[in-house]
Simulated scan of single mutants.
Amino acid sequence: MKEIKLTTTFLEYQSLSELSAKDQELMQAAIEVRKKAYAPYSQFRVGAAILLEDGTIVVGSNQENAAFPSGLCAERTAIFYAGATHPNVAMVSIAISASSDVKTTTTPIPPCGACRQAILEYEDKQARPIRMLFMGAEGAVIESPSLINILPFHFDKNSL
C-alpha cells in the first residue's frame, strides 16, 4: 500500500471589491446573467461568464426543464456556447455566481460534477488551464488556478 497526499491551494477574496477591475467585470457579467436564469423548479439561479483570450466574454445561465435531466447548468451553457461560437479561441477564466430565491447565498458555490467534467474537457482541448472564480450571491470569492486544482483525480481522454 502507498499513501497518496494531495495538496491544493485556493485564493479567497472577502468581496468583489478585492478583485482586479478585469475580474470584477467578469464576475459582474456572471451576476447579471444569473438574474436571467430560468429556474422555476429549484429557484436556484446560476450565472457563468467566460473570458476568452481575445477579450470576448461569453455568458450562460442555468436553464431548467420540467423533465429535470433535460435542463442545463450555467457553466455548461456558457462553455458549450463558447466552444461552438469561438472554437479556436482559448478560454482564460470562468466566473460563476449562484443565488437562491429563498435564502441568501454567501458561501462560494463551485461547479457541480458534470460542469467540472465539461470544463476539464476544454482545459484538455486547449492544453492550458482555465482559471476559475466562484461565489454565492454576495460575500467571499474563491479563485482556483485551474479545474484540475479542484478535481485532481479526473476522467479524461487518457482514461479511454
Score class of each variant (00 low, 15 high):
5 K>W: 12
118 A>M: 14
17 S>Y: 11
134 F>V: 07
16 L>E: 15
15 S>L: 10
60 G>C: 09
59 V>F: 01
137 A>F: 00
88 N>M: 11
51 L>T: 11
111 P>C: 14
85 T>E: 12
141 V>N: 05
101 D>G: 06
70 S>V: 15
28 Q>G: 03
34 R>E: 07
136 G>E: 05
133 L>P: 06
97 S>A: 13
64 E>P: 03
61 S>F: 00
20 S>R: 04
32 E>G: 00
115 C>I: 03
14 Q>M: 01
86 H>M: 06
35 K>E: 15
98 A>C: 14
3 E>M: 13
46 V>N: 01
25 E>R: 12
22 K>A: 13
117 Q>C: 07
32 E>C: 04
53 E>F: 00
22 K>Y: 01
93 S>D: 13
62 N>L: 13
102 V>S: 10
32 E>Q: 11
41 Y>P: 11
58 V>H: 01
121 E>F: 00
42 S>L: 11
3 E>D: 15
108 P>T: 08
103 K>D: 10
95 A>P: 05
56 T>Q: 14
90 A>I: 09
142 I>D: 06
15 S>W: 05
137 A>V: 02
77 T>Y: 02
77 T>S: 11
125 K>Q: 12
128 R>C: 06
87 P>N: 04
128 R>T: 03
71 G>F: 04
91 M>V: 03
68 F>V: 15
87 P>Y: 07
82 A>D: 09
72 L>R: 14
64 E>M: 13
82 A>V: 00
37 A>S: 05
89 V>Q: 03
141 V>Q: 03
38 Y>L: 11
99 S>W: 03
40 P>F: 06
20 S>N: 09
